[in-house]
Simulated scan of single mutants.
Amino acid sequence: MNVTAKLSPDDLARACAESMWKDDQASQGLGMALVDIKCGQATLSMTIRPDMVNGHNIAHGGFIFTLADSAFAFACNSHNERAVAAQGSITFIRPGKLGDELIAAAREVSKSGRSGLYDVRVTAGDVVIAEFRGHSRTIGGTLVPAGPTDSDKTSTT
């Protein structure tokens, strides 16, 4: 029986996120949290700490990019096909501030063959602070093993 075939697309996405999250020291180390995961979508949060502000006393753009990139990663890996970023760009619209809880909401725009296109909106409350676009490429393999299939079972008679 193929275990992943019994999961709904959103349940499979959550299983993929759990598999990725357990080894994602970067996202965890920055205090990110998985808020919501669905097929082709991911929402992560991160609060801007004192060690994340720059000389202008605003959130360093690298941390905002990293939050968006992490949301992108969870969205593009939600189909149980291992995927990595091929390209990513960000437009900073407003500054994030010390203490802001940033929310990065990623959504799949298109997926064809090994390539995917994802948009990520980063907000602080109702204020959009950045827009990110990422291009993904699958690299082979899965995050959640399918489990044994009926053809894998051997008879013991």
Rank of each mutant, 00 (worst) to 15 (best):
F92A: 09
I64Q: 03
V109G: 14
A86H: 10
P95N: 00
V120D: 03
A85R: 04
T154E: 12
P50I: 00
G99S: 07
L44K: 03
A15R: 11
C76R: 01
I90V: 11
Q87C: 14
G141N: 04
D100E: 07
I93F: 02
G29P: 06
G29E: 06
L117P: 04
F72H: 04
P148R: 13
A106I: 05
T149Y: 08
Y118N: 05
N54E: 00
V128G: 14
A85C: 10
G62R: 00
M46P: 02
F65R: 08
A71H: 06
R137E: 08
K22W: 11
A15S: 13
S112N: 11
E108H: 14
V144F: 10
G147F: 12
T91V: 14
A73V: 14
V84T: 10
M20E: 05
K6E: 13
K22C: 15
T154V: 15
L117F: 10
C16V: 07
D11I: 09
A73R: 03
D23F: 11
D152Y: 12
P95W: 01
T142W: 08
G140N: 11
S115H: 13
G116L: 06
A104I: 01
L34N: 05
G88L: 13
K22V: 15
R137L: 14
R121T: 14
V84D: 10
S19K: 10
A146F: 15
V84G: 08
A71N: 09
F92M: 10
N77K: 04
I58K: 00
P9L: 11
A86V: 09
L30Q: 09
A15L: 11
V122L: 05
A17G: 12
G40R: 06
A85G: 11
V128H: 15
R49M: 02
S45N: 04
N54H: 03
L30I: 12
V109P: 09
A146I: 14
V84M: 13
K153T: 15
T123L: 11
L30G: 09
A5W: 06
G29W: 02
C39W: 15
N57G: 04
T156G: 15
M46Q: 01
V35H: 08
H56T: 10
F92Q: 07
D10W: 08
G40L: 10
L143I: 09
M46I: 07
V122P: 00
A17I: 04
G125T: 07
A75F: 11
D10E: 10
L98H: 01
G61D: 08
S151F: 12
R49L: 06
F92E: 03
A42N: 02
L102A: 01
S112D: 12
A130Y: 00
V144I: 08
G62I: 01
V127A: 15
V144L: 07
S89A: 15
K38Q: 13
N57C: 05
V128F: 13
